[in-house]
Structures are given as structure tokens and as C-alpha cells.
Amino acid sequence: MNEGLVVLVRSIIAFFSLLIFAKILGKQQISQLTFFDYALGITIGSIAATLTTDLSSRAWPHFVGLLTWCLLGYLMEYVTEKWRYAAKYIEGEPTIVIMNGKIMENALKKMKYTATDLIGLLRVKDVFDLSQVDFAIIEPNGQLSVLKKPEYEPLTPKDMSILKAPSGISTELIYDGILINENLKQLNKTEKWLMSQLKTHEIKDVSEVFIATLTPSGSLYIDKYDDHMLKVTDIGDYKGPY
């Protein structure tokens, strides 16, 4: 019973300490983390976990370790923000692996990447033909940035001298069968207008709708619970042992 209470108290201390330190260190999406940031986060989390459950030792040494790692992490973050040369060595810098359509083999070897790794990263970027690539750059976080050759770039309205009005962000009008009146008012629409739109889709009641959204440009999307799909496409290639 006493051990459970100690673990509870330590867990609360570790939880809020980690929360405070995370706020101090700042926010970064996982996709933007460098390897150093990733390793730092794992280490800090591991120390916090040990602080919580290691009852064979006192809590304060673990807390000092947690505080030290967080302070050093914050110091490195401050140094890389203020001193570009330090950032170059701590966080790394972008590396060109394809230049003018040619693969930079030495750059790949330096980064411990193989041609297979590069091709896989290109596929993630929807590039399945190496001849379409003009430049490819591996960023410090390991992601690949790709610039296609001009002839393979998709046309935009600007290229064709076409003025296109912004579509805006979709706003939910119905969610899980529930009407959201606040969003209707925000878009200067009435419930009567919405019901008339639903009738054109042979929908008699809001409860039949799974989700309905509207953009500022007037694009309305409606999805019913019962979609009457005669056959659902299966993209799996393994049916299992049955």
C-alpha cells in the first residue's frame, strides 16, 4: 500500500515535470525532429519513467537527472537558434543527393544511404521514374525534398493565366447525425437552406447524415450512413488462412 502511494506521488511529480519541461523546450512535430531531438526525447521519457517506478533509490537523483537533460536540451536549442555554425554540426544540414538529374553517389555514401533507400523515398513523394527528378535533397530530419524537371511539373492556374478564387477550409454542418447551428450561422446559412440541400440528395432528416461540410466557396459535401455500396473495393493482397 505504501509503495503504491509512493509510485502515485512520484508519477504525479514526473508527469507535471515532463509537461513543464516539454513546454519550455517548445513544440516540434515528429516529422520535423532530427535524430538528436528524437534520442533526447526518448532519454528524458526514460528518466521520467525510472523516477516513477524505481523504488530502490531516492527520487531526487532521478529528478536532478531529468532536470539536467532538459536544461541541456534547452541550451542546445538556444545555441542552435543563435549560432548557425553550431546548428550545422548539431542538427546537420541539407544534402543534395540528385543534382541536374544525376545521382550524387558520394553524398549517398556519406549519409549511409543506398540507391534503394533513395528510390523508396522518391516513391513516398509519388515519383516512380528517376528521369523526372531535377533535384533531390535529404533534409536534416531524414525527409526527402524533390524538385521535378519543368516538363514534369503539374500545370497551375497561374501557368495558364487563370484567376482562381480560394476555396477556403471546409466547415462541418452535420457531424454524426447532429446539426451544428453555430457553424451554419458562421457561414451565413440557415437550417431551412440546409434541409433544402439535403432533399436534393433524397435525405429527409439530419440523422441520416454521417457528415456534411461546406466551404466558403459553396462546395457542399454530404455523406450518409447508408451509402448503398453494392461492392466495396478490397485493396488487400492476402485473404488470410481461411
Results as ranks from 00 to 15, higher is better:
Met1Asn: 09
Glu3Cys: 02
Ile12Arg: 06
Ile13Pro: 01
Ile13Phe: 11
Ser17Arg: 04
Ser17Glu: 11
Leu25Ser: 15
Ile30Gln: 14
Gln32Glu: 15
Thr34Trp: 03
Thr34Ile: 01
Phe36Glu: 11
Tyr38Phe: 09
Ala39Thr: 08
Ile44Gln: 06
Ser46Gln: 02
Ser46Met: 04
Ile47Gln: 08
Leu51Asp: 04
Thr53Cys: 10
Phe63Trp: 05
Gly65Ala: 14
Gly65Phe: 03
Gly73Met: 13
Tyr78Arg: 14
Val79Ile: 05
Glu81Gln: 14
Lys88Trp: 12
Ile90Gln: 13
Thr95Leu: 05
Asn106Arg: 13
Asn106Gln: 06
Lys112Tyr: 09
Thr116Val: 09
Thr116Lys: 12
Leu118Met: 02
Ile119Trp: 02
Gly120Ser: 10
Asp129Met: 14
Phe135His: 12
Phe135Gln: 09
Ile138Glu: 08
Ile138Val: 03
Ser145Tyr: 07
Leu147Gly: 07
Lys149Ala: 12
Lys149Ile: 00
Pro150Trp: 11
Glu151Val: 03
Pro154Gln: 12
Pro154Arg: 13
Leu155Tyr: 05
Met160Leu: 06
Ile162Met: 04
Ser170Gly: 13
Ile174Trp: 03
Ile174His: 04
Ile174Arg: 00
Ile180Cys: 06
Asn181Cys: 11
Asn183Met: 02
Asn183Cys: 04
Leu184Cys: 05
Lys185Arg: 11
Gln186Glu: 08
Gln186Lys: 15
Leu194Asp: 10
Met195Tyr: 13
Gln197Gly: 06
Leu198Glu: 09
Glu202Ile: 04
Asp205Tyr: 09
Thr215Glu: 09
Ser217Ile: 00
Ile222Arg: 11
Ile222Asn: 11
Asp223Asn: 15
Leu230Phe: 10
Leu230Thr: 08
Val232Tyr: 12
Asp234Arg: 07
Ile235Glu: 15
Tyr238Ile: 02
